[in-house]
Simulated assay, not measured.
Amino acid sequence: MKPASDPTPAPLSSRTTPPEPLTDTTATTALLRRFGEELQQRLSQPQLLALWAHGSLGGGDYQEGRSDLDLIAITDRRCMPEEERRLGELHENLDSTERLAAKLHCSYVAADEVADPERSHLTWAHRELKRRPVTPITRRELHTFGRVLYGADPAALLPPVTDAQLATSVLVSLRDFWRPALDHPDRWLQDIWVDLGLLVLARATVTLRDGTLISKGEALHVLAELDAPAEVVADIRARRYDVPAPTPADPAWLARRADLARDFLGHAIDRTLTTYGPGTTVGTSLPGEGAE
């Protein structure tokens, strides 16, 4: 077992094979086909240039009904307010008729605005329209394993991401979103916070070490190497990969799991920021708004 002071995971080649993605994705394929067709109809003006998938769907770790569908649409110009309204209606209609549509997230990026990773773009996520940037982490995913659903390849429209840009984005996410989020105990009673918090930490560790992006399944093995609480890691694995999925847990376990996750992440994030971000100061009072 690695000492707690060593945040470096073993090479990927030495790890156990991660959970296999589900092979029956018929409903996902049908939803993406329908979304792409209706999106082209809605975006005759502005014109749809490309539609890409990243995240689990692009990286080969997709689990139908459990994983999000993370998409990026590139248009030839920015959407006007009326066009944004119609896009919202498209997503609402899909959500009311397709069982997987609640997990479909899509950012709409104008081609002449795609170069700036700080710029926020119209995004449908968690059943509402909002604005958020396409971060260097997402951009590197698109270049590394982005799946083209329509139009041009990411390399044709999306500027490359340097290792320095990627590392900075990862460190900022840990420092300004995940570390402050630990000051909100109630959040950590929810599966999504526990899952993403620990998996983001493991994936960040590998990325900061060598610039490599890994899947959530691979991240489970990294968590074991980082001395994450074994019972929390087992809980995440079961809920994300077991078939059938386990039944909801009792409140006593949720409270214990929250304490274990927050304690581990507090020390692990601080250690990671110290190791990979010389001079980085940890902010503990900023409320988090979102992260990868």
Rank of each mutant, 00 (worst) to 15 (best):
L43Q: 07
A224G: 09
A73F: 05
V222P: 00
E292I: 09
K216N: 04
G151R: 00
T274Y: 12
H143K: 05
G151F: 05
S120H: 14
S215E: 08
D6W: 15
R257D: 13
E141S: 10
D263V: 12
P185Y: 13
A115R: 14
P9V: 08
A249Q: 15
Q45F: 14
P180R: 04
E98F: 06
M1E: 11
L198N: 05
P154M: 12
L122Y: 07
R85G: 10
A181Q: 04
A219T: 01
T162I: 06
P229Q: 12
D153F: 09
A268P: 02
E113P: 01
L201T: 02
G60R: 01
A101W: 07
T247F: 11
I236M: 08
P19E: 13
V109T: 03
D195T: 10
P81A: 10
L201F: 03
A73I: 06
D76C: 04
L142N: 04
R15C: 05
L254E: 15
L39D: 12
F35P: 00
E84Y: 09
R99E: 15
L198F: 07
V172H: 08
V172R: 11
D227I: 02
A10E: 13
V194Y: 00
P287T: 07
P278R: 07
S14L: 13
R240N: 09
F35M: 08
A291V: 05
K216A: 05
Y241V: 07
T207Y: 04
Y241H: 15
L208Y: 02
S107D: 06
A115K: 07
G36P: 02
L189V: 04
V194L: 09
D76W: 04
R127F: 10
E82P: 00
V232A: 02
T26D: 15
M80K: 10
D227P: 01
Q41N: 14
P18C: 05
T138S: 15
G59H: 09
H121T: 02
A234T: 13
D263K: 10
P180L: 07
G55M: 02
D70N: 02
R42Q: 15
Q45E: 15
P160F: 13
L104G: 00
T23V: 10
R237N: 09
A238D: 13
R147D: 03
N93G: 11
A202Q: 02
L39F: 12
R140S: 14
P180Q: 08
T275P: 03
D153E: 13
H184A: 09
W178F: 07
G55E: 10
A111E: 15
A258Y: 06
L12F: 11
A261L: 04
R85K: 14
A167Q: 10
A230G: 11
P81E: 12
A152G: 06
G290E: 12
G151N: 07
Q45S: 15
E83W: 04
A238S: 10
D116Y: 11
V233M: 05
W52A: 03
Y276R: 03
P246N: 10
G59V: 00
